[in-house]
């Protein structure tokens, strides 16, 4: 099984530690992982701005870059969701279909393809709250959303439940959006920030030290608010938690 590591463009530049943790986690499972250097961006910011036709070259570039891998794994529910669901506007060649169906979020890949019991036990002795990104939650269905009357499950909690020392604290509004929303964060900055601030307060009121999420974009927004408000809270990607062996 050959894995193509898809590191979202902003993670590559701003959060290299998340990329390294993801790579080490996958390598630790004995997988053949490669990071194709030609990768750029999945095109989501362009498409969410209403210009998906302009994003088509980036879609085609993504498919060319990743078509030879058995799975394409990304530490991002949001980017994986975009490839899976919005690459429907280009001709659906065998390569496109393969890339779309084989692009997985890291938590999804570990749960569904590897099995959560195969992962080396991590240790993260902290009180933390989970942030379910909307694209992970309702887009990729990595957990059950509170709107539906269906059996509960959570691929994130499956993985985090096995981490030694981690105490996962429930928050009051577990699937309220953090307000990042890509370009929404700068086109509607006031409401975006208010949503983020309310979200941060929810974690604060529930006494957590860390906010753990599968999407750095939500965390970039929440962390920006936390640092501006000088709050005693930290954010961390789920890959870093699962790769903690201290």
């Amino acid at each position: 099984m050959k894995i193509g590591l898809f590191i979202p463009c902003y993670v590559n530049q701003f959060y290299p530690k998340v990329g390294i943790a993801t790579l080490e986690l996958l390598e630790g499972l004995g997988l053949d992982v490669e990071y194709p250097m030609e990768q750029t961006c999945c095109g989501q910011p362009i498409a969410n701005s209403g210009m998906e036709k302009d994003a088509i070259p980036s879609y085609q570039h993504f498919v060319r870059t990743f078509k030879s891998y058995d799975y394409i794994v990304a530490p991002s529910g949001s980017c994986a969701y975009h490839v899976r669901n919005h690459y429907d506007i280009i001709p659906q060649s065998a390569d496109v279909e393969k890339v779309r169906s084989k692009t997985l979020d890291l938590a999804e890949f570990l749960n569904d393809i590897i099995g959560s019991d195969k992962i080396r036990q991590a240790r993260f002795p902290h009180k933390a709250g989970l942030h379910q990104s909307c694209h992970g939650l309702r887009g990729l269905r990595l957990a059950q959303s509170s709107e539906r009357v269906l059996p509960a499950f959570s691929k994130w909690e499956n993985l985090l439940g096995k981490v030694d020392g981690l105490s996962l604290v429930p928050i009051t509004f577990p699937d309220e959006c953090c307000g990042f929303g890509g370009t929404f964060s700068v086109t509607e900055p006031e409401v975006s920030s208010k949503m983020g601030s309310d979200k941060v307060d929810d974690y604060l009121n529930n006494g957590v030290e860390y906010i753990i999420s599968g999407d750095m974009s939500c965390l970039m927004h929440l962390d920006g608010i936390i640092r501006r408000r000088k709050l005693p809270l930290k954010t961390i990607h789920i890959a870093e938690v699962l790769n903690s062996h201290g």
Partner: peptide, 9 residues
């Protein structure tokens, strides 16, 4: 249509 974070709720 842009007055949304597209959270899907």
């Amino acid at each position: 249509p842009f007055a949304s974070s597209l959270c899907g709720s």
